Amino acid sequence: MTNIEVTLVNSFTENGKGGNPAGVVLNADQLSDAQKLKIAQAVGYSETAFVSSDDEVDYEVSFFTTTGEVDFCGHATLATFSTMYKKGLIAAGSYIQRTKAGILPVSIEPDGKVVMDQQLPQKLDSFSYQEISNVIGIESHILASTKLPIEVVSTGLPDVIIPVPNGYLDVIVPDDELIAGFCKKHKVVGFHVFELCDPESELTASCRNFAPLFGISEESATGSSSGALACYLTEHLTLGSDYVFEQGRAMNCTSIITASVKSDNSTVINVKVGGFASNIDTVAISV
């Protein structure tokens, strides 16, 4: 048995509060996938990141939920690079990580903010208001009143982007079984539901994320979905190219996620998501 040190980190915090917890394991080169899964299950968070060396780029990072490996995780990426920065292993600057979602740049600003590039958006599917109404329990005519489509967008992981009118976000009571069944059938990770904020607000939108198929009933900050939402908003609305999202309010764990999208002739050429992280603790897990 070997003791593996896991750093526990809250990602996308606001002034050190809120955020979404992730585990970070450094020097994970010798760990098998089975050991990584065991560690992720012992940590019990939605994702744990494992950092290994790489011959071509700065780091290879893999991500495990309590049920298995996923291609990418935004908040665990933030946790990873924030941890290495705070431990003095890396300085502010630009780095490249290899993930199963591709080779992705990450930068660390001098104040500790981590900004990660995501994959360029892929629009994979769309659903009628009625199809989604049956799953999230909001009547289809209410969903239709947003005049915005329901689409599957991926900047690393495919999520169903679902707009709801102001005032409806917090009243959703997710049915894990229904959502998981829908996601399994349509090969998506989860539902990213949002309501737009008032134009005077510093926030662009408030969000909730449900991914029960991967053991996550609700998540308080989702980096990959925030990149997808930013691309969706860039296509369908004229809100500029920089976004600030609030997530986790319904969980009493408010998180702040920034996103930016660069376009050229209506084609997205760059997607970035960023935020701050705060260390929680360090634990040792035997494998």
Rank of each mutant, 00 (worst) to 15 (best):
N3D: 08
V6R: 00
L8P: 02
L8Y: 06
F12I: 06
T13Y: 03
G16R: 07
A22C: 13
G23P: 06
N27H: 09
A28T: 07
D29C: 11
Q30D: 07
L31W: 08
Q35E: 08
Q35V: 12
K36F: 06
K36T: 10
L37E: 07
L37D: 08
I39K: 02
A40I: 10
V43H: 04
T48D: 04
A49V: 08
A49D: 05
F50N: 01
V51A: 02
S52D: 04
S52V: 07
D54F: 02
D54C: 09
E56A: 13
V57Y: 02
D58E: 13
D58Y: 01
F63N: 00
F64P: 01
T67L: 12
D71P: 02
F72G: 01
C73I: 15
T77H: 03
T83C: 14
M84G: 01
M84K: 05
Y85R: 10
Y85F: 15
K86V: 07
K86D: 06
G88N: 09
L89S: 14
I96R: 12
T99M: 12
G102W: 02
P105I: 09
D111P: 07
K113F: 09
K113G: 11
M116V: 10
Q118C: 12
Q118H: 12
Q119H: 09
L120G: 04
P121R: 08
K123N: 08
D125S: 09
S126D: 07
Y129L: 11
Q130M: 11
S133M: 05
E139N: 12
S140H: 04
L143H: 00
T146L: 10
T146Y: 04
K147F: 14
I150C: 01
V153F: 11
T155E: 08
G156F: 02
G156R: 01
V160R: 00
I161L: 14
I162L: 10
N166R: 14
V173K: 14
V173H: 11
V173L: 13
E177G: 15
E177P: 14
I179E: 01
V189N: 04
F191N: 01
F194A: 03
E195D: 08
E195W: 02
L196P: 00
L196M: 11
P199G: 04
S201P: 09
E202Q: 11
S206Y: 05
N209S: 07
G215F: 06
I216N: 00
S217R: 15
S217Y: 11
E218H: 03
T222A: 13
S224T: 15
S226Y: 04
L229H: 03
L229E: 00
L229N: 01
C231R: 02
L233F: 12
L233H: 02
L237G: 11
L239A: 09
G240L: 13
Y243N: 02
F245V: 05
E246P: 05
E246N: 10
G248K: 01
T254S: 09
S255H: 07
I256M: 15
I256E: 03
T258G: 06
T258N: 09
A259R: 03
S260Y: 04
V261N: 03
S263V: 13
N265S: 06
S266L: 10
S266Y: 07
S266M: 10
T267I: 14
G275Q: 03
N279S: 15
V283G: 07
V283P: 02
I285D: 05
